[in-house]
Simulated scan of single mutants.
Amino acid sequence: MHSAPKGTTLAFDFGEARIGVAQGDAEVGMGHPLATVSGSSNEAKFEAIAKLVAEWRPVQLVVGLPTHADGREHELTRLSRKFGRRLHGRFGLPVYWVDERMSSLYAESLLAEAQVFGKKQKAVLDQVAAQAILQGFFECGAAEYFNGREDGAAGGGGQKAV
């Protein structure tokens, strides 16, 4: 059993075109939408993420792990894991993967409650989805933890964060 460190956390809702980012503090247990990262290349996206990491100085990173409704993995699952491994490689921080199956529905619901629709909703949807992922991490822990080793079948050693 691995305990998550206390301190600032950045969470990511990975997408091939856009990456939503949320920030929160593990001790307080609340996340906030922060940014939507997009760019013409992976390098441009990682440069934008590096600026956020430098500004917020997180102690850990959380990446949403998309799966089918029944939990089976698909191509975006593989790409999200790759993204998380790249985050760890660049920043040397622990990465936690969190089940994100309901994050987009939760984000749409929150934005509808706030009367945010259409183009305004699209602009912040990924950030709010990242916030939902972060809240899930604070409330339920993570499915997996990655510290740079590939010793588990899923690449994270199967350790659960609490």
Rank of each mutant, 00 (worst) to 15 (best):
A22C: 12
E47G: 15
I19L: 01
N42I: 11
Q23S: 14
T36Q: 06
R57H: 13
V37H: 02
V63P: 03
A22V: 02
R57Y: 11
T8A: 14
T36S: 07
G15K: 03
T36W: 08
E27C: 01
V28H: 04
A48F: 00
A54M: 14
A11H: 03
A54T: 15
A54L: 12
G7A: 11
G24K: 07
N42M: 14
T9V: 04
A50D: 09
G29T: 01
A17Q: 02
D25C: 13
A54P: 08
A48W: 00
A54Q: 15
V62R: 01
F46T: 12
V62M: 03
K6P: 04
W56V: 10
A44H: 09
A11G: 06
A44Y: 06
L34A: 07
T8Y: 11
A26Y: 07
A26K: 10
E16W: 02
E43L: 15
T9M: 11
N42T: 11
A22M: 13
G24W: 04
T8E: 06
E43Q: 15
T8Q: 10
L52F: 06
V37F: 02
T36Y: 04
A50L: 02
P33D: 00
E47D: 09
G29E: 09
G29Q: 08
V62I: 13
A50C: 08
V53N: 02
V63L: 01
A17S: 06
G20I: 03
E27H: 10
K6I: 03
F46L: 11
S38L: 02
E27V: 09
K45Y: 00
Q23G: 10
V37T: 01
A50E: 02
E43W: 14
L10K: 06
A26W: 11
K51A: 05
G15Q: 05
L52M: 06
S40P: 09
